[in-house]
Amino acid sequence: MQHTSTQDTLVGLFVASGILGLFFLAMQVSNLSSFVNEDSYTITARFENSGGLKVKSPVSAAGVKIGRVTAISFDPKTYESVVKMSINSKYNTIPDDTTASIFTAGLLGEQYVNLDAGGSDTPLKNNGKIEITQSAIILEKALGQFLFKSAAEDKK
C-alpha cells in the first residue's frame, strides 16, 4: 500500500465527478432549477372541454409562461373539466375577469392555457376562480363541421 494517498485522491476525484454529473443533470438538464424558491398561488378554471391539456402543461399570458397546470379533474355534477393552475407569485396582478382559453402551440404542438387579462381592478387571489373560459378546439370536431358545411353547400 505504497500509493495509498494518490489512490485516496483518485477515489475522491471519482466520487466528486460523479456527484458533479448528477448535479449537472439536476440543474442544467432537468427543470429542477425553475422550481427553486418559486412561490406560487393557485387558481381554478372550469372548461367545457379541456382537450389534450395535461398536468404540467404551461400557463401563459401574452406569450410568457407564468405558471403551470397542477391538476385536472372532472366535475360529475356540471360535466365540466376543472383545471387547477399554480401561478408564480411574481404575477399577482391578474384581474379577476381574465379569460382563460386552451390553445395549441403550433398545429400539432402541446396544448396550454392562455390567460387574456380583463379590465377589472381587483386581482385574482389564491384559490380564485376564472369565470370566463373558452374550451379547447378539438381538431376532429372542427374538421367534421367544416366537411359537413362544405357538403351542404355542394348540395345547393
Partner: peptide, 8 residues
C-alpha cells in the same frame, strides 16, 4: 455515479 457521469 458512473451512470450519472455517462449521461452528463
Amino acid at each position: 455515479l458512473l451512470a450519472a457521469l455517462f449521461s452528463a
